[in-house]
Amino acid sequence: MFKKTPYQILGLEGDFTQKDIKLAYRKAIKENPPEKNQEQFTKISDAYDSLTNEEYFLNSLRGNHFIFEVSLDLDTKKEKINNSKYLKEMFEVPFEIIKEDK
């Protein structure tokens, strides 16, 4: 099961300390109170617990595949391959007319 990494959920990357984990958690739950977004609040709490509570930490290692959420501006507008153009230039018999004589 893929799950976003706890550090990423708390918005932690690069240089930070244990103290920053606590601060990041407080900030995150302040911005996402349960009445506003219960799902996000649970995610934040779980992430924090799995970084600070031994039992949660060990449980989170079981069966969870932590991944990063990454967004990219891929150059998806690149022209698609115009296969129909090539179809006109290359012959293909549509039905199975080339058959081995029995």
Binding site: M1, F2, E13, H65, F66, I67, F68, V70, L72
Partner: peptide, 17 residues
Amino acid sequence: KVKQIKLIYNNIMILIE
């Protein structure tokens, strides 16, 4: 560069999972 590393990380996770 950071996204590269994260994607390499994800790629390895996908290979495993």
